[in-house]
Simulated scan of single mutants.
Amino acid sequence: MRQIVLDTETTGLEPEQGHRVVEMACVEILNRQVTKRHLHLYMNPDRDSDPEALRVHGLTTKFLSDKPRFPEVAQQLVDFVRDAEVIIHNAAFDVKFLNAELRRAKLPPFTELCGKVTDSLMVAREMFPGKRNNLDALCERFGISNAHRTLHGALLDSELLGEVWLAMTRGQDSLLDDGADDSASGAGAGAAGAQGRFDASGLPIIQVDAQALQAHEAYLDGLDKAGGKPCLWRQIDAPPAEAGGAAV
C-alpha cells in the first residue's frame, strides 16, 4: 500500500483572493514504512505573502523570486501522487489551493490525480473528540519530538505528520515481529504466513503444581454454583461413560 503525506504553505488563506502555493512537500509511506522518497518544491507566487502567512512560514518574496512557477513543476506532483492515498491534515484547505493551481496549469482536479484523499485532522477528531488536534498537539500526544519546528515548513510538517499518522493508525498487525517485517518487505506471506512457520517445540513446558490445581477446582466449583449445573469446562472434561450416564 502506497501512501503520500502532503503539506503546502501559501501566501494567504483564500485562493479566490489570488493567494498562491509557495511550498509543497510529499513524503512517501510504503507498507507502513516511511521511505527515503519525497518531493519538495518551492514556487514563485508572483505576489507577496500576507503578513500573517509570512510569520507562519517565513518564505519571503525575495527568497521565492527565483523559484519556478507552479505550472513548471506541476507534472512532478502529478507523477508523485498518482494512484496513491494522499494524507493531508485539514485536507480541505490544501486541496482547494492545489485545485486552483492545477486549473491554472490546465490539469484535472487533485482528487482525480491520486487514489484518494484522507483528512488526518478528521480522523484525529474522531479519535480525540473535544481535544486539540493540530499537528503540535498530536506530536505531544504521541510522544513525537517537534522541538525543531520553529516555523511551519511543508517538508518538516509532512515528515512529522507521517510519524503521527503511523502512530494514530498503529494496530496489532501481527503477533510475531518477523511476520510484520516480512509484510513490510514483501518477502513473506504476512502475519498468517509467519504464524504458520512458527515452531513451538522450543517453548518451555511449565508443570502445574497441586496448589494451582486446587485453586482451579475451587474456581470451577464457583462457576457450577452460579450456573446451577456443571460448567462447560467440566462437561467437556467429563469421561465418556460419565457423560453418557448423565444423558440417560
Rank of each mutant, 00 (worst) to 15 (best):
F63V: 14
F128W: 05
Y42A: 07
F70C: 03
N134V: 04
A154W: 00
E163N: 11
A100E: 08
S145C: 12
P129W: 02
P109G: 10
V81W: 07
V95N: 07
L166K: 03
D48P: 07
L151P: 07
E85L: 13
P109F: 09
L98N: 06
R55W: 03
D79P: 08
R125V: 00
D46S: 13
H89P: 05
M43E: 09
D83W: 09
Y42R: 09
P68R: 08
P129T: 04
H148E: 15
A53S: 13
K67H: 08
E140Q: 14
S120K: 00
R103D: 15
V117D: 10
L151W: 08
G115S: 09
L102W: 08
H152P: 04
T111C: 13
V95L: 11
F80M: 07
F63G: 13
P129N: 05
V95F: 07
L160H: 02
P45F: 02
G115T: 06
R37W: 12
S145M: 09
H40G: 09
M43A: 11
T118S: 12
F93A: 08
L121D: 00
T150D: 14
R47K: 10
R125M: 03
T111K: 13
C139L: 01
P129D: 04
D119S: 07
E140P: 02
F142H: 01
A124E: 00
N146H: 11
P108S: 04
P45M: 04
L77C: 04
D119M: 01
V117Q: 11
R149W: 02
T60W: 03
N44A: 06
L135D: 00
R149E: 05
S65F: 14
T111M: 14
D50L: 15
L151T: 11
G58F: 01
V123Q: 09
D66S: 15
M43L: 13
H40R: 08
R149D: 06
V78P: 04
H57L: 05
W165E: 01
R55G: 12
D94Y: 09
P51Y: 12
N44H: 11
Q76K: 14
V123I: 14
F97N: 11
L98D: 00
L113G: 02
F97R: 13
P109C: 12
T150L: 14
P108W: 03
S158G: 09
Q75W: 15
N134Y: 04
E140W: 07
F142I: 00
E52D: 15
G58S: 06
P51F: 09
G162W: 00
